[in-house]
Design a protein around this nucleic acid. Sequence first.
DNA 1: GATGAAAGTACGCGCAG
DNA 2: CTGCGCGTACTTTCATC
Lengths: 145, 145
Amino acid sequence: MDDLDRAILRCLLADGRATFHEIGRRVRLSPPAVKRRVDRMLARGEISHFTAVIDPGSLGWEVEAYVEIYYDGNVLKDELATSLAGIPQVVGVWNVSGDADALVHVMAGSIAELEDTIEQIRRTDRLQRTRSAIVLSRLFERSLG
Amino acid sequence: MDDLDRAILRCLLADGRATFHEIGRRVRLSPPAVKRRVDRMLARGEISHFTAVIDPGSLGWEVEAYVEIYYDGNVLKDELATSLAGIPQVVGVWNVSGDADALVHVMAGSIAELEDTIEQIRRTDRLQRTRSAIVLSRLFERSLG
DNA sequence: GATGAAAGTACGCGCAG
DNA sequence: CTGCGCGTACTTTCATC
């Protein structure tokens, strides 16, 4: 991972479908050289994969919330992951240090659906309480370059 | 946005560099038909753009935290966004309802850098206090399909 | 379907260890 | 002298009309 790789990465973060030709033009490298470096970054896991960034709103995901969960005693990571992965509205879960034990990212179509989802989260085994923050607006979001 | 569009979207979420041929093979559509639909989704803003998903760890971003911020009185969205956008470690900011006023997503190379970053966030105008949750592990993260 | 562009592959060269 | 990484040339596949 040198400066050239980082420059290629910046191009791919900005446009994940950029051609090797176009990237090569920007970083002054031939298309095959760019491909080799991209393949290497993929093999090393530096690039996980490529994806489309979608607008949640235009897909009907109007409500977003971050829900802290507090549990009673010890809960295994796998246990928690498995039970929460079964809820489609749960799009991310992180174990955290601090007051709460875990942070859950929820996307829902409506406030009612959010309520249902939190209700479902609360049914998780040994879950003590939750503390929610509903997203009012995204101020900004950027990819790490 | 019909089922066919959603099927195409699923392909692009799984592989943002998939060719129109490959997508067409999966959804039983000709490559030009796929392209027209993708272009339409881009034009409508349903697909925002394409990008590479990178592994934060292999790029040196070893520490991740969510920082709630509480401010004193009213703070304008633009004001907050502008001042926090100046901190490179701040990768996302959302205004939220609940106890806190905003939620800040922070990525840092080390605990020391995280400390510095929180210190910087605290220097934001009219900021009263912060409450941090350091991410211990990602249990899972998925894209909304 | 046809054409032009990009991806993928093979081979040889130059440079650093 | 070996390994790595680039570029050129060529074939296959894809995009676009």
